Computed example of a mutant assay.
Amino acid sequence: MITSSANAKVKQVMSLAKKSKARKLSGLFVAEGLRMFKEIPKDRIDSVYVSESFLKDESRKKLVSGLVYETVADDVFSTMSDTRTPQGILALVRQYAYKIEDLLSQKKPAFLMILENIQDPGNLGTILRAGEGAGITGVLMDDTTADIYNPKVIRSTMGSICRVPFVYTDDLSADLKLLKEKGVTLYAAHLDGRNNYEKEDYTVNTGFLIGNEGNGLTDETAALADAFVKIPMMGKVESLNAAVAASVLMFETARQRRQ
């Protein structure tokens, strides 16, 4: 049993939880908690850590039956944990590797969320989770968007990280042009939208451009949209949170495609 926070494995977990660079170098990320552990495909698990008290509950102990795991003293596990109330289980998981083609290789029309400089981990995780619920085929992000393997993002996805393809790009403009060449119509959520969002047809290959929480889309990216759409507001509110706006657009698309 691991009884010291100075243990190399404990330090590795803490580094992966806190540092994007460590995650990139190792190709691993931390998935913590009962819900996330159940969602992770077992063939992607690199290693498992459980607290001493976790193993005292027989129903929980069954979760790691047949797996190799490390037992950690409760106080040390609390040190390792990225949450205020640890549930006593976490795994190091091998990262996913997708190409932009994977976002389009579905039998149904493409349905993409394209994110530029989204900074809030909660927003990113929510977009992924809501996106799975709405049926998106993938997420394309520029390289200034938050790290999808940040523990806060992982928790916010509630498992969608394991099922929704995603790609980071260091040349968003080039990839948007490629998508257009492949027949994807791009819509920018924008205050200058020509139509309210529900007036467009999203039953064909569709991508939505969602910009930074404070500044929106850059002019360069917005210029590549085929059309601007707006979400009409009542009261004195000018715009919505990025994840909320994305969800409105995604579920309108889901509604149209159901019909």
Rank of each mutant, 00 (worst) to 15 (best):
K62E: 08
T71Y: 00
V64T: 09
V10H: 01
N7A: 06
D226A: 08
N195H: 13
Y49W: 07
T203G: 05
L176Q: 01
Q256M: 00
R155Y: 02
M234H: 11
I136Y: 01
I40N: 06
D192R: 14
V153M: 07
A245Y: 02
T221L: 07
K19E: 15
G125T: 08
Y187W: 06
T85L: 10
A8W: 10
N150D: 15
N150W: 09
P232I: 10
K42T: 15
G133C: 02
L63T: 10
V64R: 07
K108I: 00
V72Y: 02
G138T: 04
A31R: 12
K152R: 15
R194P: 03
D201G: 05
R257P: 00
F77D: 00
E198H: 06
D82K: 13
V153S: 12
A8S: 14
D192E: 15
V229N: 09
I127E: 01
A134V: 03
Y96E: 15
S59Y: 07
L103A: 13
K180V: 05
D226Y: 05
D142N: 11
E213I: 00
M36T: 15
A243F: 02
T83Q: 14
T83C: 10
Y69K: 03
K199F: 11
D219N: 15
F29H: 08
E101R: 13
E116R: 01
G122Y: 13
E52Q: 10
K107S: 14
I210M: 07
V167Q: 04
Q106C: 13
R255V: 02
D120K: 07
I148G: 13
G193Q: 10
